[in-house]
Nucleic acid binder design. Structure first.
Lengths: 128, 128
DNA sequence: TAGTTGTTTCTACGCAACGTAGAAAATGGA
DNA sequence: TCCATTTTCTACGTTGCGTAGAAACAACTA
């Protein structure tokens, strides 16, 4: 129960990027900006989402446990439950988790990691 | 384009487990066995899939690039394109890949790995 | 060569997830 | 009490997946 749709991911990216909790309206605006930027000079003909759309997505993300909502304030405020790094690491563990041959997987994983990342990993593991 | 459904995964598990390429019929039988075993003494009332079902799934897996089919022989023979370990490692890279903060992700990942696996990783990264 | 049988392809249905949003309800201020 | 803002409810279209029947196809036998 962890994979995200395109819009869900876009919203999470915004929540992860901003440090403050955001309202649905704020997020809608940011999404419009983003798509305008992506469309380039062509003019953002695409995506002006309805606020209800954003709210629906936020509810779904809340149900999935990725988003937390403050119900006290009137425009509710939404924020990511965990950082993107944490979430991504969780995903990696999830992929790894269901494998009966964890060591082999780790071997392959390490095998196809860039040298600089390998260095990072060595550092993190405490070199001994 | 990488996530698998339940049956798709069951089929891949069989292909990954067996060393030889298998036919659709063989796979159907193995699936029936598996579900019988899972059902325990209760009697495998559940899953006797039609061969066409297995064939459909195999086609979809082929389209996804996970399965390769020999069309020469009459009962076509199917096999996994890459090992489960490779595939899982790919998934991990995929999760990691889309992150702008790769180092942070790796840090979190390492942080929540068991000590024995950390040891494995150290060995694999071994400065040698 | 024509029938028979095993195999594959085509087509399709139901269900769940997701993008999308209108209609209606709720809430807080004028 | 009425209005504007915000949230909830409901819903529709699309896509992926489990599932399989019907039809096409290939190989063997009589």
């Amino acid at each position: 129960m962890a994979s995200l749709g395109e819009l869900e991911r876009a919203v999470m990216d915004l929540l992860w990027a901003g440090q403050e909790a955001a309202t649905a309206n704020k997020l809608r605006d940011l999404l419009a900006q983003d798509s305008a930027a992506t469309d380039g000079i062509a003019g953002h003909q695409g995506k002006d989402l309805a606020v209800t759309t954003v709210l629906t997505v936020l509810s779904r993300l809340e149900k999935k446990g990725l988003v937390e909502r403050e119900r006290g304030t009137r425009p509710h405020r939404y924020q990511a439950v965990s950082s993107r790094a944490d979430h991504t690491a969780d995903l990696m563990h999830e992929a790894l988790g269901s494998a009966p041959d964890r060591e082999a997987v780790l071997a392959r994983f390490i095998g196809s990691v860039s040298e600089s990342e390998a260095a990072t990993l060595r550092k993190l593991l405490g070199k001994n």
